[in-house]
Design a protein around this nucleic acid. Structure first.
Lengths: 191, 191
DNA sequence: CGCGCGATTGAGTAATTTCAAATCTAGTGG
DNA sequence: CCACTAGATTTGAAATTACTCAATCGCGCG
């Protein structure tokens, strides 16, 4: 599938755009490819765009004073990634984003997003629903953090995104689940 | 402040509506008042509306198989509450919402929301930003759950929402923070 | 072959939970 | 005003869970 098709199918799960409308929207996306380990956003950066993943895997993460990394999100194909707090409030980035693997993205600038939102009603509807879905999935994750122990969080994640198993090193999975790598290792090697 | 003024001020932090537009939007909100302990949404219910809090406090929560309660959200004045997963996907409720104190709300039905969104562009923009802010605040909470121990989560919460201290029983705060009530008690009585 | 990264294992430590009991507090009825 | 009660909070002690730190193992790659 071409980048254009990937994006179009993704959007059409929520709304319908005419060829003309979609072409116009698509014209604002800039293809950007990155190598494994390359950084898209660093803490303190100005943030003016968001990334739509075509292939590969990004991670959004935060490193605390003790050098411990916490992962907020893995972004696979058709996922969006940015520091949305920075992007929407015009603040400096408070999280990092880099590549877990080589990754191809489409980059959309915030000003273009707002421009197209104004011009094409359906695009704004799409973005509203995208935010809603994001909200719902974060709520689910919070519930999982509150309610489940590390093992069931791990099983839940692997069941929902099996592709992560081979794509992402275990210590990153641990940083996403909120346990130490040692604990995660013990969890799935015993029992 | 009247309910109308509370809602209007809240909305105007994001977008500007003419008197006429606002009156039209406002006409779809139905005042609903509840007593402490009263349930607005129960797991398994059909969900067709969301609530805008005028006064008092709601909690959105989940009770697991061990009868342990986990709190997803407290909703104070100008906060919105519903089971958004159920509301947006037309599923049965997977969480409960009830009143921590006597609570006054404005109730908005999903179909009316979509209707007004179509008719008034600014309302859709408002809802898009509302979702974004919700997403950002949940992301902040996840980071806090991953990175901070129970004590700093408690201090963070009390600093951000001091009114919760007198309004909400401590064992509910514990259920929000993800610790046992005994641990929470020890945390702020030692030190 | 040796390096480097990731994964595993062991042992000791720290944090949190559970369970049970005691204490406190606000509201009710006499 | 007092006694009573239900709910909320606190405290103690034992058990559990997860963490840290250090060492080891495994494997792909130059």
């Amino acid at each position: 599938m071409t980048p254009r098709e990937i994006l179009r199918q993704h959007i059409q799960k929520t709304i319908l755009l005419s060829d003309e409308q979609f072409s116009y929207f698509f014209s604002f996306f800039k293809p950007m490819s990155f190598k494994k380990g390359q950084q898209l956003i660093r803490v303190g950066d100005d943030v003016d765009c968001e990334y739509f993943v075509l292939s590969g895997c990004l991670k959004t993460f935060f490193v605390n004073d003790d050098q411990k990394m916490h992962i907020l999100q893995f972004a696979l194909q058709t996922w969006w990634a940015s520091d949305y707090r920075a992007l929407y409030n015009h603040e400096k980035a408070s999280v990092n984003i880099d590549c877990v693997t080589d990754t191809e993205t489409l980059c959309l600038h915030a000003e273009d997003r707002e421009k197209v939102c104004k011009e094409i009603r359906e695009v704004e509807t799409f973005l509203r629903w995208r935010s809603n879905k994001g909200y719902i999935s974060l709520q689910k994750r919070i519930l999982s953090l509150l309610n489940n122990d590390a093992r069931s969080r791990y099983e839940e994640l692997m069941q929902q995104y099996p592709e992560l198993y081979n794509l992402v090193p275990k210590h990153l999975i641990a940083a996403y689940l909120g346990v130490s790598r040692e604990t995660l290792s013990r969890l799935y090697n015993s029992k």
